[in-house]
Design a protein around this nucleic acid. Structure first.
Length: 638
RNA sequence: GCUGGCGUAGCUCAGCUGGUAGAGCACUUCCUUGGUAAGGAAGAGGUCGUGGGUUCGAUUCCCAUCGCCAGCUCCA
């Protein structure tokens, strides 16, 4: 007798060897139809799994999000099956489900072309149509190694050699068999919607020392509509790509002749940056930060002291000789701020001392990682270094964290991912200090009630950090804010910083490195995608465009613009010899928040006809009335 | 850096198997003075990323190189 306990606590009895599917059928037709796999005693199993003895059973149905993982896992196998049919000599590596889809890493004789992808996709449809049952069988691991050797599946042999299980499982679906832990869908025909999306390279086991394999990506869903929706969202995301918008909206450019990863801010982009910087300065001054400015190059000597040459060398541009001394372009702003701190003796009463700067740094990033404004070689950090007594470091860290959250909120970033990043491989300082400071950051976050994830080994070389990441339109996470705890640079072995304590003795301060935006370039890129280029009024490079209907109305348009500019707003006049519709369209494409149409009637009444960028007509109003409308928008960061 | 793809006018792109280039938008001029997402006409604009090679001849084929794109690795 098999005794099955269901999630609701009820127990049912079946004959030994009853399958999971049969149990589902005994409960309800609908349940049986929607069940994808079973979970027996916490272990996922196929629907065909035969139950014996006393077990707990949970059925995973299509309605549960995790069922998609199993669908996609089976799809990875179906894709591999299609590939082997078309390219029999392909060697298979691994094929897991991922967010929104799956991939399979493989080693074909020739890399896949876009044409191959279509063929593979078509072949997959045939596999679906055949509705092969996915059948599990087991064999001893040693036997499995022999089998895979015979089939020349080198990567499977390698994996099997490393496993310790005595028995391993395979799955067969029609003409295809693959080593796999399972579970799988009952048959290939169960898959309603699947598509191969792209092929790229990927290192075997993610290690760049290993061979580069071909990774085929695919996506799969429980309905065609879900897949269409997903593909549509991807298309929409492409429209928001900051590189595309950067060109369309005339925000920035990058030039071959000057070099990759070196961003040129155009007037419209620079205006947005300027507004952000002004806001930033005001917020920092309000919180007692002190503004500083430091040079872009420095003698190597300083980077020996800081440890950059030791731990950060690969990311620094090469040395240039000046007066027979090697100099470097700065990769970080901390040494300069530290030197300012060191110019005099400080009392504990002065701390925390917060030195802030928009510091432009240059880092040598490998050419393949450069990406618009999000990954560049020269960028400006909205940097600050806070010199703080050990006693108040935890409070300062929380203050900074809250400052960062408030700052991101101003730009509509509410969905944040927070990480605690611990000691990296290349690091300086004693292990005990690392443990102590990691614990301090953890405490600070816990005490503030912040939920966070751990990023093992993701810290800076001089200390652990708290990172806040935001998502771009393609779902990629980008690090913006960072709060870093540094006990290394102030130490005797480095810059030997001190302050005079209450007892009159010299003590060593801690440092907090922090940035709210991280890189201004990256932040701007993410922001552009976030708003889809439709910047809120307070940030928009042009807040309104005055559109005279005919040449006769140009003087009045200029007068309106002058009045608004006088009031502190950014206003253009479109005096081109074009029809009104044309000018409206162009302003809409540039996503200018307001269009002020002025013709004969407006000139006579001394008014403007206001239209929003999305098309809404706000009617005719006095210029002063429009002025207060703008003022409200700016004040509320709309 | 690695694997694959791409690189034609300011932008978006056409150009089959080799015979030195085309469209739309943008730009300039003229006509038009037009009321809420493209008024009309004419003109100008390219050593087809760069350097080699094959060929009587290369934007087209081959090699190298640079850049961009998708990922991998790495990272703010």
């Amino acid at each position: 007798m098999a005794k099955v306990t269901l999630p609701d606590g009820k127990t049912r009895e079946y004959a030994d060897g009853t399958t999971v599917l049969q149990v589902a059928e005994s409960i309800g037709k609908r349940l049986a139809k929607d069940s994808v796999i079973g979970i027996v005693d916490e272990k996922p199993v196929d629907l065909g799994f035969k139950i014996t003895g006393e077990v707990k059973l949970k059925l995973v149905t299509k309605q549960q999000p995790e069922s998609l993982d199993h669908l996609r896992h089976t799809c990875a196998h179906i894709m591999a099956q299609a590939v082997l049919r078309l390219f029999p000599k392909t060697k298979l590596a691994i094929g897991p489900p991922i967010e929104d889809g799956f991939y399979y890493d493989m080693d074909p004789e020739k890399p896949f072309t876009p044409d191959d992808i279509e063929k593979i996709d078509a072949e997959m449809q045939k596999v679906l149509a055949s509705n092969f049952p996915c059948e599990r069988f087991e064999m001893p691991r040693t036997e499995a190694i022999e089998r895979c050797k015979k089939e020349k599946q080198d990567y499977k042999v390698e994996m099997l050699g490393e496993w310790t299980d005595d028995k391993v499982s395979f799955y067969t679906q029609g003409d295809f068999t693959d080593l796999c832990r399972g579970p799988h869908l009952a048959s290939t025909g169960v898959v309603p919607a699947v598509k191969v999306t792209r092929a790229t390279g990927a290192y075997w086991r993610g290690d760049e020392k290993n061979k580069m394999l071909q990774r085929l990506y695919g996506t799969a869903w429980w309905s065609k509509e879900d897949m269409e929706k997903h593909l549509f969202l991807i298309e929409e995301a492409k429209k928001r790509d900051h590189r595309k918008l950067g060109q369309e909206l005339d925000l920035f450019s990058v030039h071959n002749e000057i070099g990759g990863g070196l961003v040129h801010w155009h007037p419209r982009g620079s205006m947005i940056r300027h507004v952000m910087e002004q806001e930033w300065y005001a917020d920092h001054i309000k919180r007692g930060y002190l503004l500083v400015n430091t040079p872009h190059i420095a003698s190597e000597e300083i980077y020996k002291i800081s440890g950059h040459l030791e731990a950060y060398k690969d990311l620094m541009f090469g040395a240039m000789m000046i007066d027979d001394r090697p100099f470097r372009v700065k990769p970080m702003n901390c040494p300069g701020h530290i030197m300012i701190y060191k110019t005099k003796l400080h009392s504990y009463r002065e701390l925390p001392m917060r030195l802030a700067e928009f510091g432009t740094v240059y880092r040598f990033e490998k050419s393949g990682v450069l990406h618009g404004m999000l990954r560049v070689r020269g960028f400006t950090i909205d940097d600050a270094h806070i010199f703080v007594t050990p006693k108040s470091v935890e409070k300062e860290i929380i203050d900074v964290f809250n400052f960062a959250v408030e700052w991101l909120g101003k730009f509509g970033f509410k969905d944040l991912a927070i990480y605690l990043s611990t000691r990296p491989e290349k690091s300086v300082g004693a292990a005990a200090d690392w443990e102590k400071t990691e614990a301090a950051l953890r405490n600070a976050l816990n005490n503030a009630g912040v939920k966070f994830q751990l990023d093992e080994g993701g810290g800076a070389f001089y200390g652990p950090k708290i990172d806040i990441k935001v998502r771009d339109s393609l779902g990629r996470e980008w690090q913006c804010s960072t709060v870093q705890f540094d006990f290394n640079l102030p130490s005797e072995q480095r810059f030997n910083l001190s302050f005079v304590g209450e007892d009159g003795n010299r003590q060593q301060p801690y440092m907090v490195h922090r940035a709210l935006m991280g890189s201004v370039e990256r932040f701007f890129g993410v922001l552009t995608e976030h708003y889809g280029g439709a910047f809120p009024v307070w940030l928009s490079p042009a807040q309104a465009t005055v559109i005279p209907i005919a040449d006769a109305h140009i003087p009045y348009a200029e007068a309106v613009a002058a009045q608004l500019r006088n009031a502190g707003f950014r206003v253009d006049v479109d005096a081109r010899n074009e029809r009104t519709g044309h000018k409206i369209r162009d302003a809409a494409i540039l996503k200018t928040p307001y269009m002020l149409v002025v013709g004969e009637k407006e000139v006579a009444a001394k008014q403007v006809a206001v239209r929003e960028r999305a098309g809404k007509d706000l009617g005719v109003m006095d210029v002063t009335r429009f002025e207060s409308l703008l003022r409200e928008d700016v004040a509320s960061k709309r």
